[in-house]
Computed example of a mutant assay.
Amino acid sequence: MDHFNRLVSDQLVTMEKLLYLQGELERCQQIEEELQTLQKATDLESVQTDIRLMKKELKEIQTIFEKQTEEVINSYREMNFTPSF
C-alpha cells in the first residue's frame, strides 16, 4: 500500500507540473500572439507614416512643377512677344 501511495503521490506531483507547464505555455503563446499583432500594428503605423510623408512631398513637388510650368509658359510668351530686329 505504501508503494501505491508513493506512486500516486509522485503521479500527482507530475500532473501538477504538467498542468502548470500547460498553463504557462498557453500564457506565453497568448503573449506571443499579442506581440505579433502589435508588431504588425507597428509596421502598419510605420507604413502609414511613410505614406503621409510621401503624399506631403508629392504635393510640394506638384506645386513646384506647376510654378515651373507657369514660368516656362510666361517665358515662351515673352519670347514670342519680343519684337526681333
Rank of each mutant, 00 (worst) to 15 (best):
T14L: 14
G23D: 12
R52E: 13
S9K: 03
I31A: 00
I31Y: 01
T63P: 11
K59C: 10
D2M: 06
F85D: 15
I51M: 07
T49M: 12
M15H: 04
T14A: 13
E16L: 05
L21I: 07
P83H: 01
D10V: 01
R77G: 12
T63Y: 04
T42Q: 13
E66L: 07
S84N: 14
D50Q: 13
Q36W: 00
K55R: 12
R27L: 12
H3Q: 08
K67G: 05
L44W: 06
M15I: 11
G23S: 08
E33Q: 02
K67W: 01
N5P: 06
F65I: 09
V13K: 08
I31K: 01
E24T: 01
Q39Y: 04
L38T: 10
K17V: 06
K40C: 10
I73S: 13
S75Y: 03
D50C: 05
E24C: 02
L53G: 13
Q36P: 07
E24D: 06
T49S: 14
I61Y: 04
D2R: 03
K55H: 08
E70G: 06
Y20C: 11
E34P: 00
K55Q: 14
Q30E: 11
I31F: 00
A41R: 14
L35C: 03
K17W: 02
F65A: 14
Y76C: 15
